[in-house]
Design a protein around this nucleic acid. Structure first.
Lengths: 152, 152
DNA sequence: AAGATTTATGATACAGTATATCATACCATC
DNA sequence: GATGGTATGATATACTGTATCATAAATCTT
């Protein structure tokens, strides 16, 4: 992620935050930038380290978790539960709807590819759920993969 | 899960273990039974408690994790990463292929419904993965849901 | 602008999940 | 019954996440 695009992503993120009555405070911005600069999903602790390196500023892990909560609520960040790490949304600038995203997560290096899913696939994925008495909370799929480099 | 079906599941599990050159030792059997008797996914620690209650026997958590590893390798047990808990496979007795299972996981009570997915859906889910240079490791999807009871 | 209210962050403690490592026991087969 | 492999126990510790109380910063009200 180069600097130019990071800046435009951040300003878009700021706009989105304001729309939802939230503020992209300096601390939140630093956390988001740290995530954008990484090509991998990072744990909350790794994020705190990244912010420390990038901005020479220590943030308590507790704050990182709180900030991640806010950023996830705003759909600016996604949690990869299969590795307990967090990744910035790849589509912040593109007025996405977050219909049903698939995440290919490298089990080894934690690189993540986010793929948008089309409407018919969404229907297939949602099929049976209501009939079984379940209610879908989160339209997000994580797939356990190996990336090209790690697959050798 | 009634007792009759648990017994038949266990004997099937035993057969499957032997096929793969693994043994379903008494301890592993107890862990698997505890999982089968639960209608929810359980953490390793909860599992140790269940075995304690059910069989009046304390197993160190370390052992539970090791046993879970073996049972997962044998596809007798699945990890629900979105809640960090483990659940027995619903299809042990039915000569399943584990083509692509979807798991509906109640975010509140951790009940799990395992759904088999048909071939065409599998194709859709696997689409794009290779083109993006990723290799799928695990044909398993977890969906964050609420069950009927918890949805109110 | 002073005070009151809300929101964000800091500090500390601790709970819950998971692995590393070394030791011991069990089991097979020769 | 010695040997080697597999399974389990014991202990320590790392990693992930939350609870709670305190403080600071922004916002609102009068």
């Amino acid at each position: 992620m180069n600097v130019d695009s990071i800046e435009s992503i951040i300003s878009k993120a700021e706009a989105m935050s304001n729309q939802h009555g939230k503020k992209l405070t300096p601390t939140r911005k630093q956390v988001l930038i740290a995530m954008l600069k990484s090509d991998k999903a990072l744990s909350a602790y790794e994020l705190a380290d990244s912010v420390k390196k990038e901005f020479d500023r220590s943030i308590p892990t507790m704050s990182v978790y709180r900030i991640l909560d806010v950023l996830m609520e705003l759909k600016l960040v996604h949690k990869m539960s299969i590795v307990n790490k967090y990744v910035a949304c790849s589509h912040i600038t593109c007025d996405h709807k977050h219909s049903f995203a698939r995440f290919l997560v490298c089990n080894n290096c934690h690189k993540v590819k986010e793929i948008m899913t089309n409407g018919s696939t969404v229907k297939i994925l949602q099929g049976n759920i209501e009939e079984l008495g379940f209610k879908l909370l989160n339209k997000q799929l994580e797939l356990n993969c190996l990336c090209h480099e790690c697959a050798g």
